[in-house]
Design a binder for these strands. Structure first.
Lengths: 107, 107
DNA sequence: TTTAGATACTTGACAATGCAAGGTAGTTGG
DNA sequence: CCAACTACCTTGCATTGTCAAGTATCTAAA
């Protein structure tokens, strides 16, 4: 898959996933992988960044299957960010799609 | 606009535009700008890269409005690249869209 | 002819982000 | 104890877009 396409979009995806329900990192990796090819070394730094930016809060929950799970919970600021990013994304995609159609129509 | 979204997609856009008809750099900047916010300092290096990669060939044409224009023409290799990238792009977008719907459905 | 302005393109330092590869820890079963 | 699985995290690297500055060429006005 094209790595470049993912740039920036993963932020939206992760924000969206967590906004639906609290999740821990590993869970997110598995969930997101169903739709887009991702590496866990991509997700963890991203989660850290989004937490630093106050879009997420975290809490630990013990697990019987390994080390404690760090859950991420979306904040109010995070919800605003989702809305903004989602809007940007749709606008961007529709612009690109229009361009593609424009360039492909006579074939 | 989100800078990151553009990563990789601009390559597709430029390839598509040139595959429709031969174009010179400045013309491309203006054309692409109609759909996506771009900087001319982004387009020129990209054109150079795509030419190095044998996706484009170039030729010069005199102009009455300034210096000679360097036209870019798509190669066979370039056409294959377009097809590949376009396919990747649609697959990627539909994956993301599915994810977005998945996360937004109960609201 | 020299100056100004538009056009056309190049270059280099910079920032963001994804990836591969590695490391740490806890739990369970052999 | 050791292997396998879960879960988490860090580091260095490559790619690609941005911005600022600079080069060069043409036209037209002074």
């Amino acid at each position: 898959m094209n790595t470049q396409f993912k740039k920036g979009v993963l932020e939206l995806i992760v924000l969206l996933a967590v906004s639906k329900k609290d999740m821990y990192g590993y869970e997110l990796v598995l969930e997101v992988s169903k739709f887009v090819d991702v590496n866990d070394g991509t997700i963890y730094p991203l989660l850290k960044r989004l937490t630093n930016d106050k879009y997420f809060e975290t809490y630990l929950v013990d697990s019987t299957e390994g080390p404690a799970r760090k859950y991420y919970k979306i904040t109010v600021l995070g919800k605003e960010r989702v809305k903004e990013l989602k809007q940007n994304w749709t606008t961007f995609v529709s612009g690109v799609d229009k361009f593609i159609k424009e360039c492909t129509k006579d074939e």
